[in-house]
Design a protein around this nucleic acid. Structure first.
Lengths: 173, 173
DNA sequence: TTATTCATGTAATTTGTTACATGATTCT
DNA sequence: AGAATCATGTAACAAATTACATGAATAA
């Protein structure tokens, strides 16, 4: 009866802040947890349906500004399922880091290409970091220190990556 | 004709070091790239078949110590496909970081539970880091600086994580 | 008036893992 | 003798994305 996948729990977690629509959940995930856990509409809507069926959320249908909306509310059962999940042992970190895979095989390239490609990687990373910096103010409005912490983590992670590749580049030269 | 998924290219990349079996490819991936890109037999064997059909690898069948083996060799076509891939723009990093998801919703816990759970996270991270440290010597035998770099990355990443959560814990207390 | 955003949802496809099946060899 | 490792492979299943379909409101 408890939510058993992480996405299922994220959705419940979003609803702990306030009742919202599937669309709003997607937006919230996109500009907050997407860096370390993402979800698409194709996942969100079917899960909401499932949550409704198992009584973890309740649905309020309304028309706002002429737009049909379904606002999902967390039930008590849903909240306790969420709390149970929150204290469980976390899943190990998994990632797909394409740059590192390529670096693993760098010996197949000339020294010059190695440097060029590393510089390209750095450009990408700096670019991405900047984009993170730009969404920061919007997310800071939560006035929830833990949401700020996770946002900070994203920035710190990219600083770590940039410094790491800068070091690599200087080693190559 | 070129390999178009990352796993497809990793397999070609493994074969640039020397010809090997599907079993050996799986082992190599497990103790080298698995941290930032993993693959199971269920992916590897079908891809090898596909690579053979498209002429990127050739197969040598033999019996060694009474064991039937299929040794895969990279063809010239396969090597040039690999090199093309190697210079392409990398895919963005994606990850699943369950701890951060939970941290994002930490406001639903008492301060005491927050600290306890953070300590549990640190235990997990330190444990994992130690395991990385243990496989280091085996992988160092490659005498390929880039393979060592990626191994180092894994260790650096876990140092980053541990320091980050230590800082979090001291903030909580 | 046209593009974008808001809003919901499904079907097809992709991607990949897990579990199973098989069998020989080697280590304890 | 029995457990672990070597070795190949498939089928079932799971998870998730992409693309599509629909349509209203709003911003340019």
């Amino acid at each position: 009866m408890a939510a058993n996948s992480t996405v299922e729990s994220i959705i419940l977690g979003c609803l702990t802040t306030h009742p919202m629509s599937g669309y709003e959940i997607k937006q919230l995930i996109s500009l907050s947890t997407s860096l370390f856990y993402n979800a698409s509409y194709g996942s969100i809507y079917p899960i909401l349906k499932k949550h409704e069926e198992s009584g973890l959320v309740s649905v309020e249908e309304l028309i706002e500004n002429g737009r049909f909306k379904k606002i999902y509310h967390l039930t008590e059962k849903g909240y306790s399922a969420f709390l149970t999940w929150l204290e469980e042992t976390p899943q190990p970190i998994t990632m797909r880091n394409d740059m590192l895979v390529r670096l693993f095989f760098f010996n197949n390239l000339t020294r010059e290409k190695q440097s060029d490609i590393t510089r390209m990687y750095l450009d990408h990373l700096r670019d991405f970091r900047q984009r993170l910096e730009n969404i920061a103010p919007a997310a800071a409005a939560y006035s929830d220190p833990y949401k700020e912490y996770t946002l900070r983590w994203g920035k710190d992670f990219y600083v770590f990556l940039i410094e790491w590749y800068e070091k690599l580049l200087s080693d190559l030269e």
